[in-house]
Amino acid sequence: MTGMNIVIAGVGGQGMTGMNIVIAGVGGQGILLAGRVIAEAALAEGFDVKQSEAHGMAQRGGSVVSHVRFGEEVFSPVIEPECCDLLIGFEPVEALRNIHFLKKDGNLVCNTRKTGSLAALAASKERPLDVEKILYSRLPDALLLDGTSLAAEAGDPRAINLVLLGAAARLLPIPCSRLEAVIKKSFSGNTLKINLKAFKMGRNFKK
C-alpha cells in the first residue's frame, strides 16, 4: 500500500482509529439501514461520520453500495479503492464486485446466498462463478455465512441485514451495546424482537 492512500483515506487521528466500511448487495436487502445503524453508533461513540448512499433507479433489484466512514475528521463521503477496512457483502457476487475497495489487510464479512440477476439468467449456459472459492482464495480469513438461513431462523429472511451487522460487529471499534441501542431506537414490536435475535445470531456466528 502506498502512502498516498493513507492520506486519501483521510480518516482518523492517532487518538481515534476510524474505519472505512463498504456495504454491498442488491436493492431491497436493507443495506441502507445497516449503514445507518453503524453510522449512528459511531456518532454516539464520538466519531465524525460520513456516509454515501445510492437511491432511486439503483434500488430496483440492481447493485447497491453504501459507504460508511468514521474517524476524527472525515472529508470525502466516498471510499477510495484499496482504502476500505471492512467489506460487508450482503450477496457474494456483489462482494466480489467491490473487493477492489478492500485494503490488503482488510476484512470481509459476507452472505453466501446468491441473489439471482437477469444477467446471470441470460448467462445460465455458462458455468456459474464459484464466488465463495474466489473470495476465500483472495481472503482466507473472510467470514462467510449463510445469513439468509440465519435470518429465517431468527423469524424473517429479510432480517439478513441484522445478521450481517451482528457478524461484522466483532470487527468494529464500537461496543455492541451501542449498535443494539440504535436498533432498539429504529424498530418496535415483533420486528424489533426478530431483528435483535438476528443481530445476536450474527454476533454468535462461528466459522
Binding site: 436493492g27 430496483r60 433489484g61 464486485r97 444477467a119 448467462a123
Partner: peptide, 8 residues
C-alpha cells in the same frame, strides 16, 4: 462479473 442492472 455479470452486471446487475436495475429491473422491474
Amino acid at each position: 462479473i455479470p452486471d446487475r442492472p436495475p429491473n422491474l
